[in-house]
Design a protein around this nucleic acid. Structure first.
Lengths: 268, 268
DNA sequence: GTTTGGTATCTGGCATGCCAGATTTGGGTC
DNA sequence: GACCCAAATCTGGCATGCCAGATACCAAAC
C-alpha cells in the first residue's frame, strides 16, 4: 500500500540514494561545478491528505443539501490510498480550522456556517484587507498597483460586469487576493485565505445582484486610485467600507440564501 | 497506560455506563425532575495534549536560548502519559498554527519568530482589534464598556503604572482581550488569541519602557472614552493607532530584543 | 591527526489492531 | 401494532510496531 499499489503516489518517489553522495563532495574541485539543486523535501502523506481533503470540502456546497454531510475516516483513507493515520491528522487540522467537526463515535460532519458566523468572517476579512491596503499604499510598487487595474480592463461598456457575472466574480476574488498580497504581509495573506474559503459559498451568490456589481466595480477602481496616489488612509477606508458593505448586505439578505441557521430540520 | 499508571489522567475518567441509562428515561415522569446536566463531552486525549503542549510552548521563551529548542514525540507522550498518536495529532495542529515545525526524521523544533513575522502579527492584531472596537462601539453595553475602566482603576498617582510594570502589563493584556471580546465576534476573539501568543515574548519586553507605559495608559483611556461616546470611527482609529504604534516601536527596536533573525549561528 | 566509511541508534511517518460508546436491527413480549 | 431490550455493527480514539532517513559514533586507513 505504501509503495506500489496506488498509482497516485508512485510517481513521487525521491531520487536514488546515490545522489546524496554528490553533496558530500560538492566542496571539492572535481565536482564543484555540478551545482546540484537542494532536492525538494517531498510532501508527506499527511500534508497531501490535508490538501486533498480541504480542496474537496471547500469545493462542495454544504448548504445545497438540507442534510448535514458526514464523512468516514476509513472510507476517506481508502479513497486516498493511505492508512487512517495521516487522514486523521489531516482531519484534526481541518477541524481546528473550522471546516469539519468530529463527533466521537459518531462521525465527522462538514460544518455548516451560520449566518452570524459568515458575517463575522466578512467583518474580520474587512479588517485584515483594509490593513493590507494601508500597507500596500506605503510599500507596493507602482507596477504592482497598476497591475490591479488589468484585472478589470476586459470589462467596459461593451462588456459590462453585470452581464458576465461569473467572469466578474472571478476577477473580483482575484482583485481582493492580489490587493492583500500587495500589502507584503504573509500573515495577512494566510489569515484571509481561510476566511475567503469560509465565505466562498455565500459570496458567489450575494455578488450576483446586478446593482451591487456596478457599485462593486466602481469601488474597486476607487481603491486602486487611492493606492496610486499613495493615500494610505483613503485606501484603507475605501477597502474597509467596501467589504463591510458586503457584510451588511449578507446580514440583511443572507437568510434567503442560507436558511436561518446551520441546522435545519428540513427545507421549507 | 490508559487507565491506571498515570495520576494526571486517572482523575478524569468518565461516568460509569449506567449513567447513560438515565438519559433514555429522562422523558418519563419519575425521573424528569432530576434535571441532569448534559454531561461534559469529556475532552479527548488529543485535545488535552494539544492544550498542555500549547501552554508549555507558549509559556517558554524560545529567544532566551541561542540554540533552537527540540522536542521529542516519544518523550512528550511519556510525560503526558498517553501514546504517541494523540501527541502527534496535537503537534500537527500546533505546527499548522506556526508554533512548532516538524522536520521528518530530524525532530520537532519550537519556532522562533523573526522580527518581520512579529511585526506582521502586531499589524494583523491592530487590524482585528480596531474592527472589534468599532463593533463594540455599536453593540457593547454601557456596563461592559465601563468595566474596561475598572481594569486600570487601581493605578493612579500613588500607584503609577510605570512603577509597577508587570502589574500594568497584565492589566494591559487584559484590557486588549476584553476590548476584543466586547466586539461580540467570536471569530475576532479566536483570531487574535493566537496572534497575542505569538507576540507575547516580545510584548512583555517592549512595553517595559516607562515613557511608553505612560502613553499607553492615556491611549487606553482615550479608547474607552470613544466607546462611551459611541464614536465608532474614533474608537477604531485610536485602537488601531495605539497598536500600530507598538508595531513601529518593535520594528525599530526589536533587533536588540530578538537578534536579527530566527536562526543565529551563535550569540555575538 | 585527519579523513573516511560503515554501523548502531534515534526520530518522525505510517499501518494496523483493539476498544468503548453509539446506532441500528431484529426478535420477542404485552 | 407499539414498545422494549439485547446483540450485531459501525465509528472514531488510542496504543503499538515497523520502516526509512538522518545522525552520531567509532574504527580503520592514509
Amino acid at each position: 500500500m505504501t509503495d506500489d499499489s496506488d498509482p497516485q503516489f508512485t510517481g513521487v518517489l525521491q531520487s536514488p540514494p546515490g545522489t546524496a553522495l554528490s553533496f558530500e563532495r560538492a566542496s571539492e574541485n572535481a565536482t564543484a561545478m555540478l551545482d546540484i539543486e537542494p532536492m525538494k523535501p517531498e510532501l508527506t502523506f499527511k500534508k497531501r491528505a490535508y490538501t486533498a481533503l480541504k480542496k474537496a470540502i471547500t469545493g462542495m456546497d454544504p448548504y445545497s443539501s438540507p442534510e448535514p454531510v458526514w464523512l468516514d475516516e476509513r472510507q476517506l483513507s481508502e479513497q486516498l490510498g493511505v492508512s487512517r493515520t495521516p487522514v486523521r491528522e489531516a482531519i484534526a487540522m481541518l477541524e481546528h480550522e473550522g471546516f469539519v467537526r468530529s463527533v466521537p463515535r459518531r462521525g465527522i460532519v462538514v460544518v455548516r456556517k451560520s449566518l452570524r458566523e459568515i458575517v463575522e468572517a466578512i467583518e474580520a476579512w474587512a479588517a485584515l484587507e483594509s490593513m493590507a491596503a494601508r500597507l500596500a499604499a506605503h510599500h507596493a510598487s507602482m507596477v504592482d498597483i497598476r497591475g490591479l487595474r488589468t484585472l478589470f480592463e476586459s470589462f467596459g461598456e461593451q462588456h459590462p460586469p453585470a452581464a458576465f457575472v461569473s467572469e466578474y466574480s472571478a476577477a473580483n476574488i482575484a482583485f481582493h487576493q492580489r490587493l492583500i498580497e500587495l500589502g507584503g504581509s504573509e500573515l495577512l495573506v494566510d489569515l484571509t485565505a481561510n476566511l475567503l474559503l469560509h465565505v466562498r459559498g455565500i459570496r458567489q451568490l450575494s455578488i450576483g445582484k446586478s446593482e451591487r456589481i456596478a457599485r462593486s466595480f466602481d469601488e474597486h477602481l476607487g481603491i486602486i486610485d487611492a493606492l496610486e496616489r499613495r493615500d494610505a488612509d483613503l485606501a484603507e477606508r475605501l477597502s474597509k467600507e467596501h467589504t463591510l458593505g458586503l457584510a451588511a448586505y449578507v446580514e440583511k439578505h443572507g437568510k434567503e440564501l442560507l436558511g436561518d441557521g446551520p441546522v435545519r430540520p428540513g427545507r421549507f
